[in-house]
């Protein structure tokens, strides 16, 4: 039974249908957002989530994520 997960993503509240078979992972979220995982970095509640832990890191309503990448800068 999928449940709704409400997250704060880059400062904005967004709701997602969680997967049928358990809690949503960081990996699942990035796939849903269609992001290239090799080019982004993720902070969950102000803690870095290493790429190697995307699959095992579970998300729950109320979590706050920052998803960043490199852009032009001086």
């Amino acid at each position: 039974m999928p449940s709704t997960v409400t997250l704060t993503l880059n400062g904005e509240s967004r709701s997602f249908e969680g997967p049928e078979d358990g809690p949503m992972s960081v990996q699942g979220l990035l796939v849903l957002l269609e992001l290239d995982m090799r080019k982004v970095a993720v902070e969950l509640n102000e803690e870095i989530v290493p790429r190697s832990r995307y699959t095992e890191t579970e998300l729950a309503s109320g979590d706050s994520l920052e998803i960043v990448h490199f852009i032009g800068g001086g």
């Binding site: 880059n10 967004r14 957002l33 920052e66 998803i67 800068g73």
Partner: peptide, 17 residues
């Protein structure tokens, strides 16, 4: 030098640096 900024989640396929 490069900056680190939030990804534009409404346009995830936008070209990146």
């Amino acid at each position: 030098t490069v900056a680190v900024r939030r990804v534009n989640l409404s346009d995830p396929k936008a070209p990146m640096l």
